[in-house]
Amino acid sequence: MPKILVLYHSTYGHIEAMAEAVAEGARQVEGAVVDIKRVPETVPDDLARKSGYKMDQAAPIASVDELGDYDAVIIGAGTRFGTAASQMRSFLDQTGGLWFKGQMVGKVGSAFTSSATQHGGNETTLIGMIQTLLHHGMVVAGLPYAWAGQMTLDEITGGTPYGASTITGGDGSRMPSANELEGARFQGRYVAETAAKLHG
Rank of each mutant, 00 (worst) to 15 (best):
Q28H: 15
H14Q: 11
Q187A: 06
T95R: 06
G52I: 01
G142Y: 10
M55C: 09
G183M: 06
R174T: 10
A148F: 02
A195Y: 10
A32S: 14
E180N: 09
E193C: 04
P40M: 03
A85Y: 05
S110D: 09
D71I: 13
Q103K: 14
L153G: 15
Y8I: 04
S165F: 01
G121M: 01
A84W: 06
R38F: 07
G169H: 01
I127K: 14
E155C: 09
A141Y: 11
T42A: 10
S165A: 03
K107D: 00
G158A: 01
G52K: 02
W147M: 07
S63F: 04
Q57G: 08
L47F: 12
G52A: 00
T42E: 14
A196W: 09
F91C: 03
A48S: 13
G169Y: 02
T132A: 14
A184K: 09
H136A: 05
Q103I: 03
H135T: 11
Y190W: 07
L67K: 14
Q150G: 13
M18N: 07
V73I: 15
Q150H: 09
V64I: 15
D171C: 04
M55P: 11
P40N: 05
V64D: 05
T160W: 01
G183L: 04
T125I: 07
G106Q: 04
G25P: 06
E182A: 14
I74L: 10
A77K: 03
T95N: 06
T95I: 08
P2V: 08
E155G: 09
T194A: 03
H9A: 03
G82V: 07
V22T: 09
A192H: 08
N179F: 06
L7I: 12
Q118M: 10
S114W: 00
V73L: 06
G102H: 15
E182G: 05
E182N: 11
E193D: 12
I36R: 07
T83C: 05
K54S: 11
M138Q: 10
V34Q: 00
A195H: 12
G159A: 02
F91H: 02
R174I: 12
I36Q: 08
L7S: 11
Q87F: 00
M88G: 10
